[in-house]
């Protein structure tokens, strides 16, 4: 599905990367521990997380993650948004909890 569909399913606000919403993504992962993302993620272009710091953006860039969705309405600051823009990572923010956000995306076919 497209990143724009991810945003729609999660009723999410787009915080960065509006021009990249047409990119295709086929899988996702949910994690607050970035070391787990580095250890287990092979090709999962959507990351759902409750962690908000610049290391989330750096981890995404290094792991070729195309879209980060912050759960429970969390939002990054300007520095993080700028880093995401520089690295071509889409940032979304949803009011859903991690559990529900993952469940919604999984039920719509994002594995």
């Amino acid at each position: 599905m497209k990143i724009s569909e991810v945003a729609e399913i999660l009723n999410a606000e787009t915080l960065s990367g509006e021009e990249l919403m047409d990119r295709e993504v086929n899988s996702a992962c949910g994690a607050d521990l970035m070391s787990d993302v580095l250890a287990f993620v092979t090709d999962q272009p959507v990351l759902l997380t409750g962690l908000v710091n610049p290391q989330v953006i750096r981890t995404a860039f290094l792991m070729d993650i195309k879209c980060i969705t912050f759960v429970r309405g969390k939002k990054p600051d300007g520095e993080m948004t700028a880093l995401a823009k520089k690295n071509g990572v889409v940032l979304l923010s949803t009011q859903f909890t991690m559990y529900k956000a993952c469940g919604l995306l999984y039920s719509k076919g994002l594995e």
Binding site: D32, L33, M34, S35, A39, Q55
Partner: peptide, 17 residues
């Protein structure tokens, strides 16, 4: 450090992996 998403004892094992 854990609050920052690291410090879970995965650093060196990941580097080895």
């Amino acid at each position: 450090v854990r609050d920052l998403g690291f410090g879970a004892g995965m650093g060196l094992p990941n580097m080895k992996k």
